[in-house]
Design a binder for these strands. Sequence first.
DNA 1: ACCGTACGTGAGAATGATTCTTGTTGCAAC
DNA 2: GTTGCAACAAGAATCATTCTCACGTACGGT
Lengths: 150, 150
Amino acid sequence: MKREALTVELRKRIEGRLAEHGQRLTPGRTSLVRVLAAARRPLTIPELVDRDHTLAVSSVYRNLTALEAAGVVRRLLTDGEFAYYELADDLTGRHHHHVVCSNCGTIDDVEVSPRLEQSVVETANELARRIGFRTERHLIDLVGLCNRCV
Amino acid sequence: MKREALTVELRKRIEGRLAEHGQRLTPGRTSLVRVLAAARRPLTIPELVDRDHTLAVSSVYRNLTALEAAGVVRRLLTDGEFAYYELADDLTGRHHHHVVCSNCGTIDDVEVSPRLEQSVVETANELARRIGFRTERHLIDLVGLCNRCV
DNA sequence: ACCGTACGTGAGAATGATTCTTGTTGCAAC
DNA sequence: GTTGCAACAAGAATCATTCTCACGTACGGT
């Protein structure tokens, strides 16, 4: 298995966020971030363990929870049997959404048009006025058939 | 507990969809649809059982699965402990999305601007051309704080 | 450098939402 | 009325996730 080191800058930013929550960037957490960064799409816990057999399942769950609390990773909303995890947008610098295949269940990253993003922001503002909802983030998933399943 | 009958038309359409899948609209299923129609927001299984104590938990799970396969109800993507269910958009005639409170977990229905819907359709078309993904439906969730939790 | 404390770890047990199993009931068609 | 099949209820089984616990390890004060 190829193990590219994280860039120094990325490591520093992650350490900072964990420190704000009184947590450290340990080897196990570093491995998780490395695997997630290499994948470029959300992964399930079994997929994470498959890609790095030094990871212990119980520690993966615990560390993903800690990383999520620190805003380093995000757990996706899914209805499948496994939870999916990915690096936070603001760490990768790639704000993105997902296409979910309703046949094989695979999730892939996609970036969408600025026009769509702008429409979402306008909608969030309108809802704040109308029902007092304060939007923190949004989620756009396109559900359908991937090119392999069509 | 107030039990409004379903409109004759709605009942007919649901019976039709179930029939296409070799299933019947039984009393248990009718109760589920009635409770969901009255709620006007997605409900969890415990909430469903709370609102109609004649429902048996195991039957609720089975019947919701059958109703979902027939396209009568939809199971939402969530990361909480319970699954949420709602009536399908094309039965209620109200295409809508959701605002999810990140504090209390409540999910409410919202309708969004035609401009936003149009942007999503354009994005779906572009993805079909670019990566061969055939979009069947989309999902827009705004995650943040509801007016009670702000 | 040396501890003490607190956090991190990994293996396995416990939890609990969901699904499966079993035996029974009720409708429909002949 | 009887045969066949879907639907039913209750409880057991499943299995992703969380918890427990005993051990290891890094940091801070001295």
